[in-house]
Simulated scan of single mutants.
Amino acid sequence: MTTSIDASVAAAVQTAIAAYAQALDAGRADEIAALYTPDGVAEIVGMARFEGREAIRQGFGGFAPQTPQLHLIANTVVTSATEDEATATSNLAFFARGKAGWTVQTVGRYDDVLRRHDGAWLFQHRVTTFAE
């Protein structure tokens, strides 16, 4: 683990992770796909794997929320970084709002590889693992 991560890289990683959660909760599949490199991979362990922006757009379009939802991302650690690539791990809690209010549906983690692409930090590979 690198002990000295450039603050601007860490901030860019945090921004990409937050933008993903916001777009996911709003059902904006185009925005989710745009957060990936053109050859990016979105993997949801045991459920789906989407390769490339168009597959990501279509795949996440099928996950559009039917009721209000919220992904809370916490404890993000940038585990390594260069000026063009970073890895990070985050915890997640997924909430849905029903008649009784907000309830936790599941928890898990994200394992990310992000790359600088055309000046922006984008996901190259995101693995979502839900706790059983």
Rank of each mutant, 00 (worst) to 15 (best):
A93W: 05
V78K: 01
A74L: 07
L92E: 02
T79S: 15
D84V: 10
A81F: 07
T37R: 03
E54Y: 03
Q69G: 13
D30V: 03
R97Q: 14
V78D: 09
G40H: 01
A74W: 00
R97H: 14
Q58C: 03
L72F: 07
V78C: 10
D25C: 04
T82A: 07
R28N: 07
E54P: 00
E83I: 03
T67Y: 04
R53H: 05
A33T: 00
G46F: 09
F60V: 08
M47R: 15
F63I: 14
A48I: 04
E83H: 05
L92T: 13
G46V: 05
E31H: 03
D25E: 03
T82I: 08
Y36I: 14
G98C: 11
N75P: 06
N75Y: 01
S90C: 08
V104N: 03
F50M: 13
A33D: 06
D25W: 04
L70W: 14
V41I: 15
D30E: 15
D25L: 07
A88S: 12
V104A: 06
M47N: 11
T37E: 05
T87Y: 07
F60A: 13
E54T: 02
V41T: 15
A96P: 01
P38D: 14
V45Q: 15
G27T: 08
L35I: 06
T103W: 04
L92A: 09
A88L: 00
F60L: 14
A88T: 07
F95E: 04
T82L: 08
Q69K: 13
A26E: 12
R57W: 04
L92W: 01
R49K: 13
P65R: 03
L72W: 04
S90V: 08
G61S: 15
G52R: 01
A33E: 06
A64P: 06
G62R: 08
R57A: 03
F95Q: 09
G62A: 15
S80A: 07
G62L: 12
G101F: 08
R97Y: 11
F95S: 08
Q66D: 13
E85K: 10
A88N: 01
A34P: 00
I44C: 07
T103P: 05
K99Y: 06
E54L: 04
Y36A: 14
E54R: 12
F95T: 11
G27C: 06
A88M: 02
E54H: 09
T89G: 05
L92G: 08
G59T: 10
E83S: 13
T79I: 06
T76S: 10
Q66H: 09
H71R: 12
S80T: 02
N91S: 10
G46R: 12
L92F: 06
I44D: 00
R97S: 11
A100C: 02
V45Y: 12
A42T: 03
S80P: 00
K99I: 13
I73A: 01
F94G: 11
R53W: 01
F60K: 02
E85T: 15
T89S: 05
N75T: 11
E54A: 09
G98W: 09
V104I: 06
H71V: 13
G27D: 02
I44W: 12
P68I: 14
